[in-house]
Design a protein around this nucleic acid. Structure first.
Length: 673
RNA sequence: GCCGGAGUAGCUCAGAUGGUUAGAGCGGGCGUUUCAUACGCGCUAGGUCGGGGGUUCGAUUCCCUCCUCCGGCACCA
């Protein structure tokens, strides 16, 4: 028994919740539930990250205040979680006063250690863009590519955190506590990153306002990571009881692999500086694909977690059941820590096999036997034979091994072991053959067999609770047991057989996991198959008009749209767009994406154009193609004498580009207007 | 191109600090029971453990090299 504090990252409010968010949060919730069962004092935190230039801009574009936009988006997350059976103990927003005050306090503490200092970083500033440009973004001669005017060399004032000072302490931490950064392969990356040298970290900005003011210097706001990372600590400072979680508890952060560095390097450095205890473990999980496809905004109907859950639930008897099923699939099918794929067809198969035929049917056949052979009452156990003790030993061993896997944050293994027990129980039914005993009229033997099965089912109902809470309740109701209730200090994880006295009433009900037949599976796959919305069409309107699509509509409405600021006609007319014909194309050595093209645009000599097309086209396929060329774009130097004199218009992701062209047979050089 | 990870049965993956017949689940095939959601149980997969080379008495497991795939980074005006 101990104190367990587990967190998700706080989610940035520029996006609606998708399957990736749900995956992390479901995992954290399952861990939370597991520790509740163990009798631990348990706390789960999630929330939203709401500051930053992106939100400030987006709010402006949409005619909202930053806080208005953030509040609206934050609510999406907060409201989604309970529908997936996720019950956070706290939900923090970085715009809340409790966070802002304490983040400033943390800043002051670190500053008092002289770990924060004021300096400048230099950069190229484009007045038109109102932002700093990196050298790489600029055209030769330090020209802003967007505004075609020279950028200015400016110094922006910034506070810096003395990260370099913590290089050795961090290396010592990884050495002494290898469990701090997990999985191991990721830890190695972190270690080599730190070993390669740490530079001080810029932790404030003056270029935007939407953030937490720096104490004592309000023209600065804290830059993203100082503000965001602090949430884990600020959320646990409101009461003495909560403070104990940080000061005297096991703190575990689950994060995506993309943000491990911030959590395993910057965050412990901040905490070391502030003299605060460090988390025990930062565990990075992998990325999810759906049906083998990367998640993207274009697929957002398909990656809406509630949509998937409800659609699945509806073919499996009730929409409400879907959350449990999705939770099971995500935690069972994906090796935690590795990248994974949510394959919908495989999800149906696994549902039928594991949940329906294995566990669901075990419950149904056991209760059916009780109805027939013991009058629907819970039988008392008499003398157990080797068959029973083998199974009960197996149950004890499975519970113990699954517990170890949960402790190691390996839910996929814990579930594998749990289902191994269910399989063993099915095999036991056949060996013990209570129906054969019934013919012999051996009531005591029947009682023992059925009591053994009921006990194993009870154990299973506990072991599945972290992942399948609703189904656990349902299962227990049929077994005549009350829903699980946790109690601090009482370890409810199964440790061995505890035969209940005979006589209690059993309540067989509807199948726990009704099998999905082929028609159901087909309907489900049709509903959920990712579909790229038609060009220019509203994505929601283009989604298939099915029950689940409409169920998910509320969670996918008004996604931010990109509305480019308008240009005047004169500005537009200044762009020289021409039809060109590709004369030749070849790959550029050592540049995976680039092709070197010679394009005839009606001039004496073909233009040399370097374009990022190599992921989508083979050079030979481009030769002869009619393309649209921006002919008066400033030349761009790619190094080694490679200079591009123009740009081709195209659309799509870089690995699936479509080139713009004209429908009619037009001669090279023709101008577009 | 650089840095990671991975390439094992139809599919998803596990595993061995080098050693008699390389494992699991799902799917497939055969058999079988009848309590159950036509569900369970038993048997069954003849896989060069990505290719090549090396070390060794012996490698799929160690070393080198090559290939392929997946991430990340860079290039992508």
């Amino acid at each position: 028994m101990s104190r367990f504090y587990v967190t998700t990252p706080i989610y940035y409010v520029n996006d609606v919740p998708h399957l990736g968010h749900a995956y992390t949060t479901i995992t954290v919730d399952a861990l939370r539930r597991y520790h509740l069962l163990r009798g631990d004092e348990t706390r789960m935190l999630t929330g939203t990250d709401e500051h930053g230039l992106k939100i400030e801009r987006e709010a402006q574009e949409r005619g909202k205040t930053p806080i208005g936009l953030a509040t609206e988006m934050s609510a999406r997350f907060r409201e989604l979680w309970p529908k997936l059976e996720i019950v956070p103990d706290d939900f923090i927003r970085t715009t809340e006063k409790r966070h802002e005050d304490l983040a400033q306090e943390l800043w002051k503490t670190v500053a008092a250690k002289e770990d924060i200092y004021l300096d400048h970083y230099e950069g190229w500033y484009c007045v038109g863009c109102e932002e700093l440009k990196t050298e790489k973004e600029l055209l030769p001669g330090n020209i802003c590519p967007l505004h075609q005017r020279p950028v200015e060399r400016i110094k922006e004032e910034s506070y810096f955190f003395r990260l370099s000072k913590y290089q050795q302490p961090l290396l010592d931490l990884y050495e002494k506590h290898p469990e701090f950064a997990q999985p191991e392969s990721r830890r190695n990356e972190v270690v080599s990153f730190v070993r390669s040298g740490l530079r001080d970290l810029s932790v404030s900005r003056t270029s935007f306002k939407w953030g937490i003011p720096v104490p004592g210097d309000p023209k600065h706001v804290m830059y993203v990571w100082f503000d965001a990372l602090a949430n884990y600590w600020t959320a646990a400072q409101d009461t003495a009881a909560h403070k104990k979680f940080w000061n005297d508890g096991t703190v575990v952060h689950l994060v995506g692999k993309d943000i491990l560095r911030f959590h395993a390097v910057y965050w412990p450095a901040f905490l070391m500086s502030a003299g605060l205890p460090l988390p025990k473990t930062v565990y990075a999980h992998g990325f999810l694909t759906i049906n083998g496809q990367k998640m993207s905004k274009a697929l957002r109907n398909a990656v809406d977690p509630l949509g998937i859950a409800r659609a699945f639930g509806s073919v499996a008897g009730s929409g409400e059941a879907g959350a449990d099923i999705l939770r099971y699939q995500l935690l069972r099918a994906i090796a935690f820590g590795q990248d994974g794929d949510l394959d919908l067809a495989a999800m149906v198969e696994r549902y039928n096999a594991d949940l329906g035929k294995n566990l669901g049917n075990l419950l149904a056949r056991t209760l059916g036997l009780c109805t027939k052979l013991t009058g629907g009452k819970r039988p008392a156990a008499a003398k157990v034979t080797d068959l029973e003790s083998d199974l009960l030993n197996e149950a004890k061993r499975a519970a113990s091994r699954a517990r170890d896997e949960w402790d190691a944050i390996a839910p996929h293994r814990a579930l594998e072991i749990t289902w191994g027990l269910s399989s063993a129980a099915n095999a036991y039914v056949d060996r013990a053959a209570p129906w054969a005993e019934a013919k012999k009229g051996d009531q005591a033997r029947i009682g023992t067999i059925l009591a053994t099965l009921l006990e194993v089912l009870r154990i299973l109902s506990v072991m599945i609770w972290p992942v399948l809470p609703k189904k656990s309740d349902e299962m227990r109701a049929q077994l005549g047991l009350s829903p699980l209730a946790s109690q601090i200090g009482r370890d409810a994880w199964p440790s061995g057989a505890e035969f209940l006295p005979g006589g209690g009433t059993l309540a067989p009900g509807a199948p726990l996991f009704p099998t999905v037949d082929e028609d159901g599976a087909r309907a489900l796959l049709e509903t959920l198959t990712p579909r790229i919305p038609a060009e220019g069409a509203n994505a929601d309107a283009a989604a298939p008009a099915t029950a689940s699509a409409s169920a998910s509509a509320s969670a996918t409405a008004s996604t931010p749209t990109e509305s480019p600021s308008s240009v005047t006609y004169d500005q537009f007319a200044a762009v020289d767009l021409r039809v060109g014909r590709v004369r030749s194309a070849e790959r550029v050595p050592k540049k995976d994406k680039l092709l070197l093209l010679k394009v005839d645009v009606g001039e004496a000599e073909p233009r040399t154009i370097v374009a990022g097309l190599a992921l989508s086209f083979r050079p030979e396929d481009l030769v002869g193609k009619r393309v649209i060329v921006v002919a008066n774009l400033a030349p761009r130097d790619f190094g080694k004498g490679l200079i591009s004199h123009g740009m081709l218009l195209a659309t799509g992701p870089s690995e699936k580009l479509a080139l713009a062209t004209v429908a009619a047979e037009v001669e090279p050089g023709a101008k577009l207007k």
